[in-house]
Amino acid sequence: MRWLVHVIFIIFYLLVTFFGLGPVLFADGVVQERIYTALIVFAIYGVLTYFYLKFIRMKK
Rank of each mutant, 00 (worst) to 15 (best):
K59P: 00
P23L: 04
L25R: 05
F51L: 13
V24D: 04
A43E: 11
A27M: 09
L14K: 01
T49L: 14
F12Y: 05
D28E: 14
V30S: 15
L14S: 10
V47H: 07
L21W: 12
I44T: 13
F19G: 01
G29W: 06
T37K: 14
L53K: 12
L48P: 05
F18W: 10
I11H: 03
L39T: 07
F42H: 08
M58Q: 15
F18A: 10
G20H: 01
R34A: 14
V41C: 11
Y13W: 10
I11E: 06
L39H: 08
I35W: 08
I35F: 09
I44D: 05
F12E: 03
A43V: 11
L39R: 11
I44Y: 10
F42I: 13
V5F: 08
V7R: 03
R2F: 10
T49E: 14
R57S: 15
K59N: 13
D28P: 00
L15R: 03
L39F: 12
R2N: 06
H6C: 04
L21A: 05
V7D: 02
F51M: 08
A27W: 07
E33G: 09
F42E: 12
W3K: 04
L39Q: 11
V41Y: 05
F9K: 00
F55T: 09
Y45P: 02
G20T: 02
F42C: 13
I35K: 06
K60C: 04
G20P: 01
I11G: 07
Y45A: 05
A38Y: 08
Y36A: 09
V5E: 02
F19R: 02
A27R: 05
M58G: 12
F9R: 01
L39E: 12
R34N: 09
V16T: 12
K60Q: 13
V31Q: 10
F9P: 00
V7Y: 04
I44F: 12
L4W: 03
I35R: 06
V31F: 13
W3P: 00
D28M: 07
I11M: 10
K54P: 00
L25K: 03
Y36G: 08
R2C: 00
I56P: 00
A43N: 08
R57T: 14
V16A: 06
I10S: 09
F18K: 09
I40M: 13
L14Y: 05
D28G: 12
G29C: 05
F26M: 08
L48H: 06
L53Y: 13
R57V: 14
V30A: 14
A38T: 07
F42A: 14
F18V: 11
I56M: 11
M1S: 08
L25T: 02
T49D: 10
G29N: 09
Q32I: 08
L48A: 08
I35L: 14
I40C: 09
I11V: 15
K60R: 15
G29A: 09
F19P: 00
F26V: 04
F42Q: 09
Q32L: 12
M58H: 13
R2V: 03
T49C: 07
T17A: 13
I11W: 06
V31I: 13
G22L: 04
I56G: 00
I8K: 01
R57A: 14
